[in-house]
Nucleic acid binder design. Structure first.
Length: 214
DNA sequence: GCCCAGGTGGGTA
DNA sequence: TACCCACATGGG
């Protein structure tokens, strides 16, 4: 079933070439800034950071918090997110010498625990960093994933984050490439057909069993 | 003007 | 464990 969903989405939308970022730093920054936030707002904040030459680990470490807050303001909850960026950078420099590759190295489960210890990095942010900044095999579950799969009865309401992630990892070939593409495709279909009160018309999954109620 | 967005952490019972 | 709530901007 999960592979069937993937094939439908891939056929409909093709390769997504994710994450939308030019560097691992930008992936991490984007993963934190997009927490409960529309990507269109994150893009503005990242553009500000780029123009201020703040898309490097040393620059993020050295930029004063008020300045960082000003730059990322368009992404919302900017005080919270400035603190989270700072806590990530502090952990990276304190524990791994500013080397993201080291932070993300070793068994995936170990690297994941390292990330989850950073204040402001929860399971989704950790998995997005592992998969898209580190090319590590960790499936990313987001709001779209849950909304779409619940609508088609593939998930139940009481499947939490870890249960959902485990479901994907147990039923799919163990491939970072596949995890990458699959999550990106779920976001693609979610933005088009499973957002707020949006209906399923034209959705590549619309002929699967689905729940009309919202 | 209202609702929502590619979450997380802290507080309360 | 299971809910609430704050965080905050910008687009539809």
């Amino acid at each position: 079933m999960l592979l069937d969903v993937f094939r439908r989405l891939h056929k409909a939308y093709g390769p997504q070439e994710w994450w939308p970022a030019d560097s691992p730093v930008e992936v991490v920054v984007g993963a934190i800034l997009t927490q409960n936030t529309a990507w269109s707002n994150v893009r503005k904040a990242i553009r500000n950071l780029g123009e201020a030459d703040c898309l490097g680990w040393a620059a993020l470490r050295d930029v004063p918090v008020p300045e960082l807050e000003r730059l990322i303001r368009p992404s919302g909850t900017f005080r919270v997110k400035a603190a989270r960026l700072k806590s990530f950078v502090a952990a990276l420099w304190h524990d791994h010498g500013g080397d993201l590759g080291r932070l993300l190295s070793g068994p995936v489960a170990v690297a994941r625990q390292r990330l989850l210890r950073v204040p402001g990095v929860g399971p989704e942010t950790a998995d997005a960093i592992l998969l898209y900044a580190g090319n590590r095999r960790s499936f990313v579950v987001d709001a779209y994933t849950r909304r779409i799969l619940r609508r088609h009865f593939i998930l139940s309401n009481d499947d939490d984050y870890e249960a959902t992630r485990a479901l994907f990892q147990q039923h799919l070939p163990h491939s970072a490439r596949l995890y990458n593409e699959y999550h990106a495709l779920l976001v693609a279909v979610g933005k088009r057909h499973c957002r707020g009160t949006a209906v399923c018309n034209g959705c590549p999954l619309s002929d699967l069993a689905h729940d009309e109620r919202e």
